[in-house]
Design a protein around this nucleic acid. Structure first.
Lengths: 187, 187
DNA sequence: TTTTGTTATGCAAGTTTTTGCATAATAGGC
DNA sequence: GCCTATTATGCAAAAACTTGCATAACAAAA
């Protein structure tokens, strides 16, 4: 959908290769936009053909050659155009919730294990976001000002993960209640 | 991805037509799984061909004819199999955050308007989820027990929307700070 | 020294999802 | 009497995304 525009934005702030962009998706923007490397390369090709990007092949000695992409004026114009039109609200397709919805058809143990797996992932994500936030607060005011907007998206990630983990606790309590006699003696 | 399984689950709890399912996606499950009617019909066709669903054509006088789908034993088995295997964590692709990330390239007014649109949608969703929750709490204990698992997914929706709106307030404060001289005199 | 990881790019095939179009009957509001 | 909404289904084309495969060089760890 707007992988196109996510790429335009990333290249606007700093030119780079497909591999660069892919890493930026994995690290920085991964919590609000995901893309496989194949798709990034394909999209770069399409955007070049559309005239929104230009690239220079860059031969390297110790590393494989790469293509350095940057925005063309047309690409910049397209970015501004896109920023001016409304984006439609996000739709959620969450398989975990589908599974939980049908939870009555499987065992509480199975659900607990599933939740544990997801909790581990979300905790790790939250930790990494909080660490990025700490770094941000350590920056000089000038740089913080320049990163104000990306910081707001970081906040979305942090609040979102915290809320998710809070919910996970509710779920754990609810799943414990299903098997009250599972622990032998008890506190 | 698991539209297949979302459909199996919906039909497990109650058989119905494609149109029924589409409405259930829009109303009940809409906050964690979205599907267009075309995709639902297509998927029902595929699931029938795979032997997981069976249907009876049902002629109606006042309304167009419809097909009533229900799970086959093979469909039930597939559902149980799917419930036993881990689902992978959800990935987020959120165009609003992409836009906000690039917010420095557009006007605060534009961003504020965009946020207002999204806030209205999220508030409406939250209201409707809270109303469903009130209904749930009004049910007799027996029915609440039967709906325990779907209720957990409802909680996810509620906590998620509340967290989103909380974040939106942070964003509004941050956007106000960009144009401190925009209001003429004072408070 | 073999294996694993990182850098770097991409094609091909398949699946999933969206968008556009099409039909058809009835009910209700203006 | 006309317009709009609701019920009900679906095809076709395109766009978006995933999965599998392929290559290639170097660096570091086992």
């Amino acid at each position: 959908m707007s992988l196109k525009h996510a790429i335009l934005i990333l290249l606007e702030s700093e030119p780079g290769s497909g591999y660069d962009l892919f890493k930026r998706f994995k690290d920085g923007l991964g919590y609000f936009w995901n893309a496989k490397h194949q798709q990034v390369y394909l999209e770069l090709k399409k955007l070049s053909e559309a005239g929104w990007l230009a690239f220079e092949a860059q031969t390297q000695d110790t590393r494989p050659d790469k293509k350095n992409y940057r925005l063309t004026p047309a690409g910049h114009a397209e970015l501004l155009r896109w920023l001016g039109e409304p984006v439609q609200p996000n739709t959620i397709n969450d398989a975990l919730l589908v599974k939980l919805y049908a939870g009555a058809h499987t065992s509480p143990d199975n659900l607990r294990e599933e939740m544990q797996r997801h909790i581990a992932v979300h905790r790790k994500t939250l930790d990494s976001l909080l660490s990025i936030e700490r770094d941000y607060h350590g920056l000089p005011a000038e740089q913080r000002q320049a990163l104000r907007m990306p910081y707001l998206t970081l906040r979305r990630g942090i609040l979102g993960e915290q809320s998710w983990l809070q919910w996970a606790e509710e779920v754990e309590h609810a799943l414990q209640d299903t098997t009250p006699a599972s622990t032998p003696a008890g506190k």
